[in-house]
Computed example of a mutant assay.
Amino acid sequence: MAATQVLQSEWTKIRSVQSTLWTLSLALVVTLALGALISIVTRNTFEDLSVRDQAAFDATRVSFAGMGLGQLAMIVFGVLVISNEYSTGMIRTSLAAVPQRGTFLFSKIAIASSLALLVGVVTSFGAFFLGQALLGEHRASLGDSGVLRAVFGGGLYMGLIAMFSMGVAAMLRSPMLSLGVLMPFFFIISNILGNVDATRKAGQYLPDQAGSHVMQVVAPPDDAAPYGPWGGLAIMAAWVAAALVGGYVVIKRRDA
């Protein structure tokens, strides 16, 4: 089967599975909703912040407060895209139709990643404009130094989270096992390693902690990361590449 036909087939599969499309919609909705709520609260309580916190105030990052929940939806999307066929047994039919396993896997990833990146960028810009409108006089402008980079980078971050999840799901091949690894990794282990003094330096190189630096306009006072915004995103991209290579090796060597 030609590569273009494989791509078209994967696009049809993703469109036909409602759960994958719902997770992308959920990523958009929860990110905007929570970001809007936090922006309203921040505007109403800004005067209660200490002088130090007001000086380090990052209006752009406030509008991204919902990214955590949006990230959760992106993880689920990435896992479902890859592991749905394993859980239903359709993987055997797919590999019989496309015996070139690399073509099969990376066509699926190409279509799903394009969707995730598109939704991620729309979500990031939407969250920014909505959040800044609600912040009132404390808002930032897209033309301010570092803001456009942070907003566009937020979209790339969400897309890369989905891609990393796809790579892990391709290695583990089970939706429950993949989510059982990814959820604790991002929402428990990463937070612990990043906030404990003994492990903070190592935690800075985890994909979410490194990648999220691209969304910062004003660095927190306690931020001692040895890389800049794009350097952090590059570290995250390296994690994604490693996960995708791992997924390719597994699907190449193991039976369906």
Rank of each mutant, 00 (worst) to 15 (best):
P207R: 13
A224H: 15
Q132D: 05
A238F: 14
N191T: 04
D58H: 08
L177H: 03
Q100E: 05
S63G: 09
K108Q: 03
T123E: 12
D197N: 08
L37W: 13
G89E: 08
Q204Y: 10
L172G: 01
V121Q: 10
R173M: 03
A238S: 06
L7R: 09
G228Y: 11
A241E: 06
P99T: 02
I161W: 00
V249Q: 03
P175A: 09
F57K: 04
G70D: 05
G102A: 02
M171Q: 02
G131Q: 10
W22A: 15
S174C: 11
I251V: 12
W11H: 11
N191C: 01
T20F: 10
D197W: 06
P184I: 06
A234Q: 08
G180A: 05
Y227S: 09
G167Q: 00
M74G: 07
S16F: 13
L172E: 00
S39F: 13
L172W: 01
G232K: 10
V29N: 10
A225K: 14
A150N: 05
Y227E: 11
A224R: 14
F64Q: 11
I235C: 08
L182C: 04
G68R: 07
G35L: 11
F46V: 05
T42S: 13
M183L: 15
G66Q: 12
L206M: 14
T199R: 06
L172A: 07
I251K: 04
G231K: 12
M90V: 01
S145H: 09
R43I: 01
R101I: 00
A65I: 04
F185M: 02
S174G: 12
L26Y: 14
G203C: 08
D53S: 15
L28N: 09
E85Y: 04
R149Q: 06
P99Y: 00
S114M: 03
G154I: 06
I192N: 04
A243D: 07
K252Y: 04
G231C: 10
I111T: 09
L95P: 07
G78I: 03
L130T: 14
M74I: 04
S107D: 00
V17D: 10
P220S: 12
G136F: 15
Q132C: 07
R253K: 11
V218L: 10
L32E: 00
A210S: 11
I188P: 00
G70C: 07
E85Q: 09
A198H: 02
S87V: 04
V41C: 03
D48F: 09
V214W: 12
I111G: 02
A56G: 09
L69S: 05
N191I: 09
I111R: 02
M1G: 03
D53R: 14
D197E: 08
G78K: 03
A242P: 11
F129N: 06
A210G: 02
L244S: 03
G68D: 05
G89D: 05
T31A: 15
G203L: 07
L118T: 10
G35V: 13
T42Y: 13
M236P: 06
S113E: 01
P226E: 05
A243P: 14
S178I: 01
N44M: 08
L115G: 05
S113I: 00
